[in-house]
Design a protein around this nucleic acid. Structure first.
Lengths: 101, 101
DNA sequence: GGTGTTGTTCGATCGTTGTCGAACAAGGGT
DNA sequence: ACCCTTGTTCGACAACGATCGAACAACACC
């Protein structure tokens, strides 16, 4: 399986913002904010696994996450350093905002 | 005319991000980044005035801009301080990104 | 009052996207 | 080999949103 993980600089800002402008995806990003890895299945936010897979794809193709295979699972992690370098303050601003605002 | 300018804290983060996740609106925000006021008509980015009015409404209702009447015109300005207080780094991150990325 | 300028609103269209179930693929375990 | 778990992909559907032209409203100015 080809994992499409673009260079962040190649992703339009609007695409990055659009990727973050969704409740489910924001919850995923929040869950990854500690820098750790998590399996796709660990993000159970009341959506089907098809939908979850879709959201993870959006985040990945926006250059926000990296994914690696581990057995039958896939481990996802936030590309925190790269995002912070290109958009300093963006993740902090989004992550420190109270959930379900 | 009732101008709907919500308290920023009452706007979901996703709505703020969604408001910024559009090329036309991002151009508007960039044009207002210097802190000045501008008439709606000054944002001529190749869209009709109906579309422009729609985008300004989205920005206003996301709590990102304020609008005041001035004759037949309406002057728009960015709510920079408030946004920076609630989402420090967000506007900077977005505004310093190279346009047409 | 009439005309022109500036914006907003309405209705319609059309592409995008969030959502699901079902089918499929790849591994691990017994 | 078989099955179960984990994800992805494929249609389909519904909701949303960007866009436009046209109609309307508010104001200024002559």
């Amino acid at each position: 399986m080809e994992l499409h993980e673009p260079d962040l600089t190649a992703v339009p800002v609007t695409a990055v913002l659009a990727a973050l402008a969704d409740d489910v995806r924001l919850q995923i990003v929040r869950a990854l904010a500690d820098g750790g890895e998590a399996a796709c299945g660990s993000f159970d936010f009341g959506v089907s696994k098809a939908t979850r897979s879709h959201h993870l794809k959006v985040l990945r193709e926006a250059g926000l996450t990296r994914t690696r295979a581990a057995g039958t699972s896939r481990l996802v992690r936030l590309r925190r350093d790269e995002v912070d370098t290109l958009y300093p303050g963006l993740l902090d601003a989004v992550l420190t905002s109270r959930p379900t605002a």
